[in-house]
Design a binder for these strands. Structure first.
Lengths: 184, 184
DNA sequence: TTATAATTTCAGGAAATACTGAAAATACAG
DNA sequence: CTGTATTTTCAGTATTTCCTGAAATTATAA
């Protein structure tokens, strides 16, 4: 059913899935759809991967919740077909967005709450100081990410390809605008 | 033992741990050490979190493998004490480095191998094209990350704080160097 | 409508993972 | 060295997570 090429990729993403908070099934379904040249229905997926129909159903539901697969229909066929977005940049952004919504935002909210409380002793003061550092780092990073996020995929790709030159530009900006006495 | 403030943070990171590929124990130990105003030994950690001594030992071992905690000794005490690096940027970079070594590099290596094989049919050709897209995205992203990585923490922090202005700079670079006909 | 195809839900079993206590290993003071 | 404090290992158990098959639900063709 699957070519050896596809199979290796699928198995790898099954493993990786577990390290990213989704189970093997979900990782494998995603990988299969990612490589497929045409949309697949649940039966095809189940047969290719050796999973029960119900397991595939649950996996697809989770992938949809992550906005990582798209549901569509073929004319004259009443089964549901699935595909992944074609643009890998788009996928990357979707993933980042979901990770943010599910993990970053709740963490920020907890940190903000904790920082509003008044510290009872030195240990609590120290804990709050650490929380503030973490809070600021996360806010800074995500804020910056938001900025980059607004750029079009094409612009982003080109910028990324600039590689070293971007760094040079950043260093320059640093020196020009920030009184560059520190080393890079 | 733990203040309510610390406890909430610790419990939250226990939950988050599971989504990041480490178990609850490891997440909680890390969170506790992160907030602590002084290094802690394994008994103190176990008592604070209600884990067995052996569980704490395993958790610390894992955190050391991730380079997320540092082992040190107090004079006149033969027990081992642990602390987290103080600079949150440093922590962020360590995490990124480890994620890369454990997840990104193996994936890239698999993709590279797959791309070297000759495709048997159109489906395999399509699969390889998709793998190339993914490969290029990952290489581009990590390559760029490497560049940024070389900047000092201070420079990075300042750049991040620039926020919108960095984006402007990037857009400018795009227009100047890349024949900017596309929208941002 | 009714019949049938397709999907989802969910209770229970299977598998994987986490955690503990006891024993072994290690480190070090005397 | 010897004895003791400390850490690590690991087999067994507890817990969690995953996965399945059967039943329920939903959608649609006739």
């Amino acid at each position: 059913m699957m070519s050896p090429l596809t199979e290796r990729f699928v198995l790898h993403f099954g493993e990786m899935g577990s390290r990213w908070g989704v189970n093997r099934t979900v990782g494998q379904i995603y990988a299969l759809l990612f490589l497929s040249s045409k949309p697949l229905n649940a039966d095809e997926i189940g047969e290719a991967l050796g999973f029960s129909r119900s397991n595939v159903s649950m996996g697809l539901k989770e992938l949809q919740a992550w906005h990582l697969v798209r549901l569509l229909h073929q004319t004259g066929d009443r089964r549901e077909y699935f595909e992944t977005p074609k643009d890998v940049w788009d996928i990357f952004r979707t993933l980042a967005e979901e990770k943010r919504r599910r993990e970053i935002e709740p963490t920020l909210s907890l940190l903000r709450d904790a920082l509003l409380e008044s510290a009872a002793d030195d240990d609590e003061r120290h804990a709050q100081a650490r929380m503030r550092e973490m809070h600021d780092l996360i806010e800074m990073t995500t804020g910056w990410f938001d900025e980059v996020h607004r750029l079009s995929p094409e612009t982003l790709q080109k910028l990324m390809r600039l590689g070293a030159r971007v760094t040079k530009l950043l260093e320059m900006a640093d020196r020009l605008r920030l009184g560059g006495k520190e080393p890079v």
